[in-house]
Design a protein around this nucleic acid. Structure first.
Lengths: 250, 250
DNA sequence: TTTCTGAAAATGTGATCACAAAAAGAGATT
DNA sequence: AATCTCTTTTTGTGATCACATTTTCAGAAA
């Protein structure tokens, strides 16, 4: 596996990183026609980071990624630069490019920021949601449970994100969504750790509550449900367990 | 002025754009030692957009900026790509790079997002603020009034941003600050329009209220003061007047 | 005057190269 | 065995170039 590429894709955790990256980033997402190399690289990396393919502290290289994506340094560097702008990566002083480390305090800040942003976005979405859209949201919620019961952690995570995204993007001017995804990206690497250590997934979310509140067009109840949902867990992961894990890692 | 450069820096509003850009972006900020060309370009453009140097819809070119910044396309393109990630610019389908247009609805969304984000950040900052820092914040508030009375719109704007930034960055893990600045960037172009049309600046902010609340460590009062401050105006600009202006422009 | 057409210019994209800084590694020294 | 030193390799940076697409604009046609 190492000899496959002349250069290392990752400096640390090479095997694990590759193992996670390969299915997530390399084969599945074919490049659509008309998509630039840069956009392709950006979206692949973004998606990989958001679902926890990279552990905190992992460092990547421009040439390594260019090779993995069968491209050249220029578009990859642009993609990496963009990812730093949204907190997904970090260019260090010594020119190393790493996935940011997360302290327990930072983790708490990010969760609290998620609550502020997403309860706000949920409130703002209510008036724009049609009945049909709400039913779609409920359908996505069902698929989350299916994935959790099936034990596919990454799929559960993605479905959970889709659930939240579907609500917030009902707003025709979804200015909050990019910021919310920035926070998700910063939490991604933690989820990667969680996925390695947590074997049991729990279906304890507040999605039903949120959906009911959406149907009633009850702003306060929606915001409360979303806040509680975030506070308690992330797509099958128990929040407290993740926090504990983080303290151990630090 | 036009003949100075072989290529146009802006496609539209060339004269106005240059007039605003020159003092803000070109001469003053000298490139510090050790700062890369890319970082320099990024920071200059970012600052220029944040204080309203570019009107909505203005389009820029990579080569034009590279020439203006005495650099080459590569680092400038990276800077522009980063700016799109934080909502300051937009790469259109036809490969044009523009400052995003803003609809009245989007404007309202951004203001409401500012309130959600900044009242949250203010709450989170309270426990980390020392007495000395609060006095510094009060000093910045004084300088805002000075600038407003002096009639320097850009300086007033920058001082106002410094006031808010000083509060939010007291938090040792300021995860919200980059997101807040992203919103500021998206509002920047509107401020540019406001600065062109508004002649009178008002010193009607809630800063004193906010500072008092900070001294009392009163979370709710701080959040309320910040929310009211944002709702009513931006660094000397009356919010309602700006909204009216925007409806006219649309 | 307006609209259409085709050539010329401009522009974003991505690959490549030279360069300096940093990291890695081999071998000697303590 | 641990530390230091010097060479080699790797890596980010920025400039340049070729290419395809888009825009611009002059001139013809209606």
């Amino acid at each position: 596996m190492y000899a496959d590429s002349a250069r290392a894709l990752f400096r640390d955790d090479l095997a694990e990183g590759l193992a996670l990256l390969k299915p997530l980033v390399l084969p599945p997402l074919a490049r659509p026609d008309g998509m630039t190399t840069h956009d392709y690289a950006f979206n692949r990396l973004r998606q990989a980071i958001m679902v926890g393919a990279f552990r905190p502290g992992t460092s990547v290289t421009i040439r390594g990624l260019a090779e993995a994506l069968e491209s050249s340094p220029t578009p990859v560097r642009e993609a990496l630069r963009q990812l730093t702008s949204i907190g997904a990566l970090q260019f260090l002083e010594n020119r190393r490019i790493v996935v940011p480390h997360i302290t327990p305090a930072r983790f708490e800040e990010l969760i609290s920021l998620r609550i502020a942003l997403e309860s706000h976005a949920a409130r703002r979405a209510i008036t724009h949601l049609s009945e049909r859209q709400i039913e779609k949201i409920a359908a996505i919620d069902d698929s989350i449970e299916t994935e959790i019961r099936g034990g596919d952690k990454v799929a559960a995570l993605i479905a959970n994100q889709a659930f939240h995204r579907m609500i917030y993007t009902a707003n025709p001017d979804p200015v909050a969504m990019p910021l919310i995804e920035s926070v998700w990206l910063q939490l991604g690497p933690i989820l990667g750790i969680a996925m390695e250590h947590v074997t049991e997934l729990y279906v304890v979310d507040r999605h039903r509550e949120a959906i009911d509140a959406l149907r009633r067009r009850d702003e306060g109840a929606v915001a409360d449900a979303i806040a509680a949902d975030i506070r308690e867990g992330i797509g099958g992961f128990d929040q407290q367990a993740v926090a504990r894990l983080l303290r151990l890692a630090a």
